[in-house]
Amino acid sequence: MAILTIQKATPREEEDVEMVYSDADSDAEEQMVMSDDENEDMDDNAQAANVAAGLVTPGKLITEDPIWMRGHGTYSVGNKTFSSTAGVVTKTNKLLSVVPLRGRYQPQIGDHVVGRIVDVGVKRWRVDIGAKQLAVLQLGSVNLPGGILRRKQESDELQMRGFLKEGDLINTEVQSLYQDGSAALHTRSLRYGKLRNGVLITVPSALIVRAKSHVHQLPGGVDTVVGVNGWIWLCMAWANSHLTRENTTSITRLEEEASLTETYSDKNEDIPRSVRENIARYANCFKALAANEVGITEDRVIAAYEASLVYPSAGDLIDKEAKEIIAAKAIAA
């Protein structure tokens, strides 16, 4: 284990400068020419022609065809549609958009995300989810102790900090989007709520692969919530964890109340040493995948973990080479 590893800046690669210029030329030609494939289904997809394909940059003309609806990443002047970002042109039905190469997390309805309370306001909290704006969590969108059907009382408004205060981490879902693209959240399910018994790590949101469930039980006694926004919560697996319990109909009222009171507790359980070490190991595995720009799925994380067991000390995983080895094994799996 090296005390300190120092990487020197890699020298610039200049070999493909010439190639790049010629590609820029050919892209310009592509824009106005119909490709052969599209010629074949001309009758159905007459509109598929005359559209620039692949990588575009700001100001590039995508199409002059007025039949397209303009989505994100584009703007129009008259009939002409231009790209406003550097990204890839995507067509979904009649919607033409450019997906940027990079950008902050863009919330979508149904996304399971992890967020941090930043502000307590009147009847609502504002939550940082790593997007362009803070998300809003209304008081009416959370479960309060006492039962799901409990009526909201005035005292609740005054006691909002008793439930969620600045700095708290929550597990939540995007319920809807406002006009400007910012998110409205809710935690109206026993699956969601305050997070305890673990740590938060962040990875770029683009690397999170959307899946049916974002809560995973990992080998080693660790549970994880992989937020679509790139915020990942790693914690101790919990037998009666409200995280992993399905929304069954056979919950008794007592159980429900008990779990709801726990939901807003700040106290951690006793977490054994081995679990803490595994959590640190998983954190390094996630970071290794992120550093090598590998899409994050449950299988890959488990594969990375197993590959990492070769290193008895998880602290060795912070080195660049170790990260690359683990990422390679994770992709291969």
Partner: peptide, 14 residues
Amino acid sequence: PDAREPNQFRPVDA
């Protein structure tokens, strides 16, 4: 949090 030893530094770019 990242399982480092107490005397271990994080890698740096120079």
